[in-house]
Computed example of a mutant assay.
Amino acid sequence: MKVNIYDVAKAANVSIATVSKVINNTGRISDKTKKKVNDIIKELDYKPSLIASALMGKNTRTIGFILPDLANPFFSELARYIEDKANEYDYNVVICSTDYLKEKEDMYISLLMQKNVDGFILASGFEHFETVQKLMDEEVPVVIVARNYPEVPVNLVAIHDYEAGYQATSFLIQQGHQRISIIARDIWSNRERFRGYSDAMKDHQLPIPLEIYYAKESTIQAGHDSLQQIMQESKIAPTAIFACNDMMAVGAIKASQKMGLVVPDDISVIGFDDTLIAQIINPALTTIAQPKKKIANEAVNLLMSAIDGDTQNHTIILKTELIERDSVKKI
């Protein structure tokens, strides 16, 4: 049978309030009584309830990490780095995946609030900011990652998606490509990358395809289907594809190969994120790397500061890097 606080109080011959004060290091308790209670706690192997600790005003040493898709290597790698960094602070991480659905975002936030987590790292789309604003209004520590809210004061760690989209497209143009199509999903980060793509094309006086198709998901299959649609409906086939994440880029490569095209000889492909899949695919994927470990470290550091009482909001924008591999050819 599980030991509870009543068992500790009885064995130590003290009140429950005294045990609580010893656990939380509050009140005026003699060193002799503290030692006695702590010895009993160790002897009985008593583990204080996290919920009970929260009700007594003590941190549960747990944070909630809400992300859109754990199957996406970018978010799974980010989750691992966040867990590693949180463990350095002796914190546990509860991870929830939302599929970019607002009802799931709201559900998981409500659930984790009931679990008395000490704060949140939010990496989902959160297209509706009122969900985040409600947490902030309740003075719950929050850090946003993997998207930006330029006009909202909030703790945030992100990249400049617009500039990264411009960089990826400019690189393809520098390699001699003029007919460049994009595969993107209708979410904030991809819309910003699309905006960078569009401006890079305009700045080089290059035509943007008349029909833009947003992928329904950020998956290999979505990239595969998008590439097929682009090739079937384009009057002049593109020589290069900019996919707004590595999974869709891999899908585009698979579809190209199925159509008898050789990457990069017949069509070049550049991805985004630099996940493990970028190195496994053949040919190895040229991509825009996000500094995932640094994003995770900065996010956890910001959240720990907020939990400790820092009420200032901090915005950290990190740089991306172009990783050249084998999927883009100079023409």
Rank of each mutant, 00 (worst) to 15 (best):
K235Q: 09
R28E: 10
S170E: 10
F120R: 02
S256P: 07
E321C: 11
D45Y: 05
I331T: 12
Y81I: 00
H204L: 10
I173K: 08
D31Y: 01
L261D: 02
F194P: 03
D265P: 12
I241F: 10
I23V: 14
E298M: 05
Y214W: 14
K330R: 11
I270H: 09
F242I: 06
A278I: 08
Y100C: 02
V19N: 13
K216A: 11
G64R: 08
R195N: 14
I281P: 00
D69E: 13
N38A: 10
A289P: 12
G309H: 04
L101E: 05
I109L: 04
P141C: 07
I82G: 01
T26F: 03
I51R: 13
T320E: 12
G176V: 04
P141K: 01
D203M: 15
V250A: 09
E211V: 11
K10E: 13
V22M: 07
L227I: 02
A240C: 15
N92C: 13
M304F: 03
D310G: 06
N297R: 01
A249Q: 10
Q167A: 07
I316Y: 04
K292E: 05
Q205E: 06
P209V: 07
D274G: 01
K235C: 01
E139C: 13
S20N: 08
G271H: 03
F194V: 10
T26C: 06
D246E: 03
M247F: 02
H177S: 06
V250G: 08
I187G: 00
F272L: 11
S20R: 07
S30R: 06
D137H: 13
N282I: 15
S218A: 10
I63Y: 01
T315C: 12
I323D: 04
S110D: 07
N87P: 03
A296D: 00
V142K: 00
H128N: 12
E127R: 11
P207M: 09
A54E: 06
T275I: 08
I40T: 04
C244H: 06
V154M: 03
N148S: 09
N282Q: 11
V300G: 00
